[in-house]
Write a protein that binds this DNA or RNA. Structure first.
Length: 710
DNA sequence: AATCCGTCTATTTTT
DNA sequence: TAGACGGATT
């Protein structure tokens, strides 16, 4: 069969598995997506199932789109019948279809994290909660965590005053959302789960429809998502779960790798297939990755191999400072460019976003084009949020969040006092702001009344209009475009607002949907491109997390220092170090042919200079695959975190006369390798504070300590 | 209603 | 260092 050509034996076995649930351990670069999509195509082509019987779940819209495109390329069928999407997207689809059974408003809106936080804040204020003791951030986290455990406010075990209060906040928050007809991300999943558990007819309907369920990135599923799958699959569906425990890097947002083991048990998995042949990286790179990840204890076990040769060694660079590291990256990238490499095939990775600044600075000075991933995305921009708020009010006037956002934007004389009066009235009546507005009198009533009429007019005028025109009318009538046009630096925002019209047009065309509510949920569920894609060939700067799933010819992993990578906060956490190591594993396996690892002795962090020791990950990679580009500064192995406290400034007027400087590596006959982190005194009084890593931090008198420069 | 200023904080991120 | 936020000021 044409479909199955060029699959390796393991891939073939996975694709053609008989009707039993299976777990596919797919290593980095092992052709995971290919297996997933070919499996679907094979199921359909061999007549095991019609497209209608397929449910495929992914984590990102990007992955879902990719799957869809690949399948349509393989099969001459209409892919519309298949349900392929993210957990949230699929839940949204289900809830829209059964909103009444789910107890939701017909045009319920979806809150993104920002919106959710705003609702939480409003609830806290209305409850008169002390926001120092119960910060909105914490409350939001609490609510989401509880929802992900499948618990409602009433299910929470009250242990103390604090948990009692949080449970109350949770309850009030849910009531508020219900009143407004809005739903947060976790709610989409929980609501669907509750709907299907409660409603046997619906449950059986979907169970018998989706005979084949496929899950991508299974290691990233959280508890609720897993329960959701179990509920939907029932006894008879065949679940094909693809994942890689070694690439589980999202524990902090609820991902539960344990789901993999649980899946094996719950679904009586007899087939665990390992895809270990890597088609991406050269031998040395894989050797580094394998050796590193072998240091983790909790693994399902897997070893990548490649038919390609050893390739180049992994290059290691030690810089004096973060700035020098950045300059070196720039030079090296320029050299690669001269060799003919496309800049977009070079990635510069870091553990945390703050690290990008120095690098950007160096790149900017050198004139090398680059693109930074992360940051604000299209639908998260303020002007877009404002525009969407008008649309949301047109679709669902009870959306208080949207109401508050734009009632006085652009300014129309509705001040804080008017809004407070309105909120009081709404609270008293147990109604939304929009509905309470009618009962408001006086000056406030007049101004608010004007806004309500605007919303009504907007709804009336856009009735029956095509979506893009609805957006256009809204932009004009709301006064948003006029407002930004009059601002000196509003040009970009006006441009973005116009872009929203295009987004609506694209949505109508691609999704074959013309409903405003559908467009709004699309906006919430798919927050859009991370940054306008610049056509120019540019270096790719991103965190290791966002590099997952990507590959590059050359990869720089920067800031490989204790405290940074592995991050100091993770080292304290249970299992934190193992996750950092998986993160490093993900970073390494992004590279096809060239890999650079770099670290700096000195780094500016939070406005203070820190003296960092090289990451322990260097010690976990065999020296044979490494090639040092800088003179070797061998240092003690670090089992625990070690970094410098704040150094005292050595004033220039009393420059030390002993020749040692802060940040320098030294050798001590008893304590071994260390880094000077502080110094005081001079001459025979000179004392140095040295970080000996595992041996600890010591103050030594220079006169007696037999120190040598390392 | 807009702006200024001091305080606080500071992994990782998708939906 | 630098951004976000809340409170106070103009």
């Amino acid at each position: 069969m044409l479909l199955l050509e060029n699959l390796n034996p393991e891939q073939l076995a996975a694709v053609t598995l008989p009707d039993q649930s299976a777990l596919i351990l797919a290593g980095a670069g092992s052709g995971k997506t290919r297996v997933l999509t070919t499996r679907i195509a094979w199921l359909i082509q061999t007549g095991r199932v019609s497209p209608n019987g397929i449910l495929a779940v992914t984590f990102t819209n990007k992955a879902a789109r990719e799957m869809l495109t690949r399948i349509s390329a393989m099969l001459p069928i209409n892919v519309r019948g298949m349900w392929i999407g993210t957990f949230h997207g699929l839940c949204n689809r289900l809830l829209r279809a059964h909103y009444r059974d789910a107890g939701l408003a017909q045009h319920f809106q979806i809150l993104d994290s920002q919106d959710q936080q705003a609702v939480v804040k409003r609830v806290l204020k209305a409850m008169n909660v002390d926001e120092d003791r119960f910060p909105a951030r914490e409350a939001q986290y609490f609510i989401n965590a509880e929802k992900e455990e499948g618990r409602r406010a009433k299910d929470i075990e009250i242990a103390d005053e604090i948990s009692r209060r949080y449970a109350e906040i949770y309850a009030a928050y849910d009531e508020q959302c219900q009143r407004e007809g809005v739903v947060d991300f976790a709610e989409l999943l929980l609501r669907t789960h509750e709907l299907l558990s409660r409603n046997e007819i619906l449950r059986e309907h979907y169970r018998s429809r989706f005979r084949y369920i496929l899950v991508d990135e299974f290691q990233d599923t959280n508890r609720l998502q897993y329960r959701w799958l179990k509920l939907l699959a029932g006894e008879d569906s065949v679940v094909f779960a693809v994942g890689d425990d070694d690439q589980s890097i999202y524990r902090f947002r609820g991902a539960n790798v344990g789901n993999m083991a649980e899946f094996e048990r719950d679904f009586r998995v007899e087939n665990v297939i390992r895809l270990e042949q890597n088609y991406r990286s050269h031998g040395n790179i894989l050797a580094a990755a394998n050796a590193l990840i072998a240091h983790n204890r909790r693994r399902l076990g897997k070893n990548l191999w490649t038919a390609a040769g050893q390739g180049e060694p992994v290059r290691v660079y030690e810089a004096q400072s973060d700035e020098q590291e950045a300059r070196w990256i720039t030079e090296e990238a320029q050299a690669l460019k001269r060799e003919g490499l496309r800049l977009s095939d070079i990635a510069i990775l870091y553990r945390s976003n703050a690290q990008s600044r120095v690098i950007e600075h160096a790149l900017f000075s050198s004139g090398l084009p680059y693109r930074v991933y992360g940051g604000l995305r299209f639908f998260e921009r303020l002007e877009i949020k404002h525009a969407l708020a008008y649309l949301r009010l047109a679709a669902n006037p009870d959306d208080d969040g949207a109401f508050l956002r734009v009632a006085n934007f652009p300014a129309r004389g509705i001040g804080a006092r008017s809004l407070e009066a309105l909120q009081d009235a709404a609270k008293l009546a147990g109604a939304s702001l929009y509905r309470a507005a009618a009962g408001l009198s006086g000056k406030a009533g007049a101004a608010v009344g004007g806004f309500v009429r605007l919303v009504d007019a907007l709804r009336a005028e856009t009735q029956g209009l095509p979506l893009p025109e609805t957006v256009e009318v809204m932009l004009e009538r709301s006064g948003l475009v006029a407002h930004y046009r009059s601002q000196r630096d509003g040009a970009d925002r006006v441009e973005n607002l116009n872009e929203l019209v295009n987004a609506a047009a694209a949505f109508v065309q691609e999704e074959d949907e013309k409903d405003l509510a559908a467009f709004l949920s699309h906006a919430a569920l798919e927050s859009g491109e991370n940054q306008a894609a610049e056509g120019a060939d540019a270096l790719q700067l991103m965190t290791v997390h966002s590099a997952k799933g990507l590959e590059f010819h050359a990869v720089f992993i920067t800031g490989l220092e204790e405290g940074l990578f592995p991050h100091e906060q993770s080292v304290m956490e249970e299992d934190g170090l193992e996750e950092e190591r998986r993160l490093m594993y993900v970073a390494i396996t992004r590279a096809r042919t060239r890999l650079y690892l770099s670290h700096a002795q000195t780094r500016m962090l939070h406005g203070q200079t820190r003296y960092n020791v090289a990451s322990r990950f260097f010690d976990e990679i065999p020296g044979a695959v490494l090639k040092r580009l800088t003179p070797r500064l061998e240092r003690g192995r670090l089992e625990d975190v070690a970094w410098a406290p704040e150094p005292k400034k050595v004033s220039a007027s009393r420059a030390p006369d002993h020749g040692f400087r802060i940040g320098q590596s030294v050798l001590h006959p008893k304590f071994g390798q260390g880094v000077i982190v502080n110094a005081e005194g001079s001459g025979t009084d000179a004392r140095l504070q040295i970080n000996f890593g595992k041996q600890g931090m010591k103050w030594l008198a220079l006169e007696y300590a037999r120190l040598t420069a390392a």
